Computed example of a mutant assay.
Amino acid sequence: MAQNLKIACQGMTQNDLAVRTGIPNSTLSGYFAERSTPSPGNVQKIANALGIHKSDIDPRFGHSELANDACLQAAFGQLSDNRQLAVIRYAENQLQRQRSDNLHQP
């Protein structure tokens, strides 16, 4: 992802990007040096500032966020324990319903 950022930001300083996005220079430095991974919100801020799609800089946002395990994990990891449990229960319920629907299809 760092390489994608460098390509997308050609002709722009890190400080320019910080001003456009509101993301601190120190945080951006971590992204460019691959010391940290931006949150989905910061990826969107960067994409907006550069006038590109977030998938152009971050492969987690490929064709479908729903199909992207890394994106799902990032969102899940930010939830409280109670909300994580609710997501697990909901997913299990949806899987049971899907299996039931598949049994009743001609």
Rank of each mutant, 00 (worst) to 15 (best):
D56G: 09
A47Y: 04
A18T: 12
D69N: 01
K54Y: 02
S39E: 09
D81C: 09
I88D: 08
S100H: 14
A47Q: 02
L85V: 14
V43D: 06
G62T: 07
K45T: 02
A91E: 02
L28G: 00
G11H: 13
K6Q: 15
Q84K: 15
S26M: 12
G11P: 05
L17V: 13
S80A: 13
N82P: 03
A8V: 12
Q10L: 06
H53C: 06
N15W: 11
G41L: 05
A2D: 14
L72Y: 04
R20C: 00
L85R: 15
P40D: 07
A49L: 09
C9F: 04
Q105D: 01
P59R: 00
E65R: 04
L72N: 00
L66Y: 14
E92P: 00
F32D: 07
A47S: 04
Q105R: 15
Q98W: 13
F61D: 05
L72P: 02
R83K: 15
T27M: 12
N82M: 05
S26G: 08
I57D: 03
D101L: 15
Q94L: 11
N82E: 11
T13Y: 06
R97G: 05
D81Q: 14
P106C: 00
A86S: 14
Q96A: 12
E92I: 06
V87K: 02
N25R: 15
S26Y: 12
D69R: 02
R99Q: 13
Q98I: 15
Q3W: 07
T13V: 02
S29N: 15
S39W: 06
D16L: 03
P59L: 01
N25C: 00
S36D: 14
G77K: 04
Q3E: 15
S36W: 12
I23R: 04
M12C: 11
V43M: 05
S26I: 07
P106M: 00
H104A: 09
F32N: 07
Q96Y: 11
P59I: 01
A33G: 03
G41P: 05
P38H: 13
K45M: 13
N15S: 13
Q78L: 08
N48Y: 01
G11T: 12
S29C: 10
P38V: 06
A75R: 10
I23M: 04
R89K: 13
R89I: 10
L66K: 08
A18Y: 06
D101G: 08
M1L: 08
Q84L: 06
I88G: 07
A8F: 03
Q84P: 08
V43T: 04
C9M: 15
A91D: 02
N4Q: 10
T21Y: 12
L17F: 06
S55C: 03
G51W: 05
R35I: 01
A67G: 10
A18W: 05
R97M: 12
N102E: 14
R35F: 07
R60P: 00
A86D: 09
L103F: 08
R60D: 02
R99E: 11
V19H: 11
M12F: 05
R83L: 04
F61E: 01
Q105C: 00
Q44S: 06
Q98R: 11
R99F: 10
A49G: 04
N48I: 07
I88W: 09
G62I: 00
D56H: 08
V87A: 12
S29G: 06
N42I: 01
